[in-house]
């Protein structure tokens, strides 16, 4: 267990290092002068002195490695600088939006699970029959449909035609249904297939036969004995695809005007608000590593044999 935590912490370190160098380099490579952006030079008259003063205030006149070092020191104190647009500290702004995004992703996750598990189980116990084929076709559709397009169709149906759900904004549960479903659905149907494959695999294990021979009820066999082994590959793939999930969240946030992290990032991109973009990228990196750590730790809860395998290493 310690081994895996150490491994993930090391990964976190690498991710942060690579990301920080990456975004820092990009920032320096980026076209346009941030000083002019901050001073809003397009619309106001800006003197040379103003520029020079701001430049030295921001430390832009120092060598790159000094700038990077200072930036990293600040980063260690959760100081990501200030947004060029609002002037507010980036960290505060991120945290404010993070909450809203977490609301969306949690709900999407909930929808995802409540589609994936019943669908996967139904497909597995009816392998080869129509529920299985339906799940197979749904999975093909889910893997092929652009989720923003799915969202557009849902808006068209539920907002314009049926007029039962709002298409944008936040506030009530009715606001969260469409975006969360859009985000959750494409993943859910693919995970249902994975769960089906896992269940078919584990239902053919000898211990299932032995369990039946002991006279256990079929639902216990399925949900307690077979399910645990089957869920592991699904969790693994979830850890691997958490990135696409977050990416999908960006698109969905824009589509449904959901004022979360993704919207913040896209706004920042169009406004060339570099500190905010940097902050967003770093935060996402950390988030991905943490989710993967949780995925790793969940293995220990689900399958106690893993501890022993690790000891053997």
């Amino acid at each position: 267990m310690l081994f895996i935590i150490r491994k993930r912490l090391f990964q976190l370190f690498i991710v942060l290092l690579v990301l920080s160098i990456f975004t820092f380099t990009l920032m320096k490579l980026a076209p346009g002068d941030p000083v002019l952006t901050i001073l809003n030079a397009d619309e106001m008259l800006v003197t040379e002195e103003d520029q020079a003063k701001l430049r030295s205030d921001l430390g832009f006149d120092q060598p790159l490695y000094v700038q990077y070092g200072k930036w990293m020191l600040n980063l260690a104190q959760l100081d990501l600088g200030k947004s060029y647009m609002t002037g507010k500290p980036v960290w505060d702004e991120l945290m404010e939006r993070l909450q809203i995004t977490i609301e969306l992703t949690t709900f999407a996750l909930f929808i995802m699970i409540s589609i994936a598990i019943p669908l996967g189980v139904l497909a597995a116990i009816n392998a080869g029959r129509w529920p299985d084929q339906v799940s197979r076709i749904l999975a093909l559709i889910g893997a092929s449909i652009p989720n923003f397009w799915l969202g557009l169709i849902l808006i068209y149906l539920f907002t314009f035609k049926l007029q039962i759900l709002p298409s944008s904004g936040i506030g009530s549960y009715s606001h969260i249904i469409l975006p969360a479903f859009t985000l959750g659905f494409t993943f859910a149907v693919v995970y249902a297939r994975l769960l089906r494959a896992g269940l078919l695999q584990s239902m053919s294990e000898d211990f299932i036969l032995a369990g039946r021979a002991r006279g256990l009820k079929e639902w216990r066999i399925l949900w307690i004995h077979a399910f645990r082994a089957a869920i592991l590959p699904v969790i693994t793939v979830f850890g691997l695809s958490i990135g696409s999930f977050l990416g999908g969240a960006v698109v969905v946030e824009i589509l449904f005007s959901w004022p979360g992290l993704g919207s913040l990032a896209v706004e920042a991109i169009f406004n060339r608000d570099y500190p905010v973009i940097q902050g967003y990228v770093l935060l996402t990196g950390i988030f991905v590593v943490i989710v993967n750590l949780l995925v790793d730790l969940s293995y220990y809860v689900i399958d106690p044999r893993i501890n022993r395998k690790e000891e053997a290493l």
């Binding site: 294990e205 000898d206 211990f207 036969l209 032995a210 369990g211 039946r212 021979a213 002991r214 006279g215 256990l216 009820k217 079929e218 307690i224 004995h225 645990r228 082994a229 689900i302 399958d303 106690p304 044999r305």
Partner: peptide, 24 residues
Amino acid sequence: MRQVRGKEIAYVSQNYQSFFTPFI
């Protein structure tokens, strides 16, 4: 039949490694 299995007829298999569900 389920009530007969385990109660009236018991089964011991060759494969003791996977007679019990491994993570319970």
